[in-house]
Design a protein around this nucleic acid. Sequence first.
DNA 1: ACATGCGTGTTACTTGTGGTAACACCGAGT
DNA 2: ACTCGGTGTTACCACAAGTAACACGCATGT
Lengths: 213, 213
Amino acid sequence: MNTTQRTDQQRSADRRRRELLEAADRVVLRDGPQASMNAIAAEAGITKPILYRHFGDKGGLYAALAERHTDALLDSLRAALDAPADRRERVEATLDTYLSAIEARPQVYRFLMHPAEESQSDQGFDVGKHSAPLLRRMGEELAQVIGERLDLGPDGRQLARVWGHGIVGMMHAAGDWWLGERPCPRAELVHSLADLLWGRLAAAGDKVGGPGF
Amino acid sequence: MNTTQRTDQQRSADRRRRELLEAADRVVLRDGPQASMNAIAAEAGITKPILYRHFGDKGGLYAALAERHTDALLDSLRAALDAPADRRERVEATLDTYLSAIEARPQVYRFLMHPAEESQSDQGFDVGKHSAPLLRRMGEELAQVIGERLDLGPDGRQLARVWGHGIVGMMHAAGDWWLGERPCPRAELVHSLADLLWGRLAAAGDKVGGPGF
DNA sequence: ACATGCGTGTTACTTGTGGTAACACCGAGT
DNA sequence: ACTCGGTGTTACCACAAGTAACACGCATGT
């Protein structure tokens, strides 16, 4: 039968694809974002053209790879965001989840943020969308949660999106810096960021004798 | 005389270096961060080895190039941060300055954020410091201003650094997203981000009938 | 006047990486 | 037996980073 054969082959192709992705995963975990197609093929025990048949080009492979991790991370974040606790606790749990993830597997996180930026695209000005898809997806996700649950008046939708991307960026940049310098324990970073979101910057007093801020 | 000769040559070398940087600038402005050394050399009317003699390697050229723009942008930001106005106005002015800059020359900004990520470094784990130097410098700069002027109690230094990097990341990610989608005028984005920093997220009420946030 | 450097420039090469074409094998259906 | 679709290979191309090795101009010391 055509259909059973088709599904059989498709099933085996899918399994192969997953195996290849796992091999690629190991290489990226070891070599970071500059893992070469040759290295990935070697790790998988095959040669380049097979990779290209499965994923089209490097961008395709990287996209497939990124999607897995992105989905996994987003699931964790959603769980933290949906926990039964008050707002502040949930914000802190979300921050902590993200930071734990990047702390546990920095190479993967690095890869997710830096998707090789190939795709010099068609013509000079493809400005925008250069940012990592993970950041965008996290931003949109957070925007949705905020927009759904908070009463922000008219333009609430818009405001929620700005905040979603802004908060994600804050989390990302602070996490990146923290991971490099390790200036404090994770819990302290989480607390400081939550304080920032809770308006402590605006509420803080000027230093006595200073020029004010 | 040895010294006058030295200075003469040095002067001419410096001029040449500046010319090369300007040529590189034009190419990057046109081609974005994936500008090739060949293209830059051609634009400057010379060939590759000269570039390599002047800048060592691609990273060196890019670093020199980035430093110019980074310095310029940081000067603008400092000016906005030091303007004679109240805190909120200055925060908004700073945000607006940054957003204007990336809006005016997206290719340059893109290049600054994505310094080619070469430098696969020595050994697998050079985690951290992968982020663009511009972001780090802006973060440190802002941290210094905050730490200098705000009374944040003990650990104020630490808190200021976290906030500096966090705010810069917020600005960056939101700006990046905004530049790609242009969902609203710049002024509105600035206002929304300032609202976020002013704690409107924490203060907002839950939507009626929703699960709360 | 002549040789010695030294900075500027070149051509031509090596190495590595993304990507592809052409061919070989193998198992299932007609 | 014979084709067909999928898996795999070797061998290649294009192109970018980076590096010799060599050639010219020009001030200087003898």
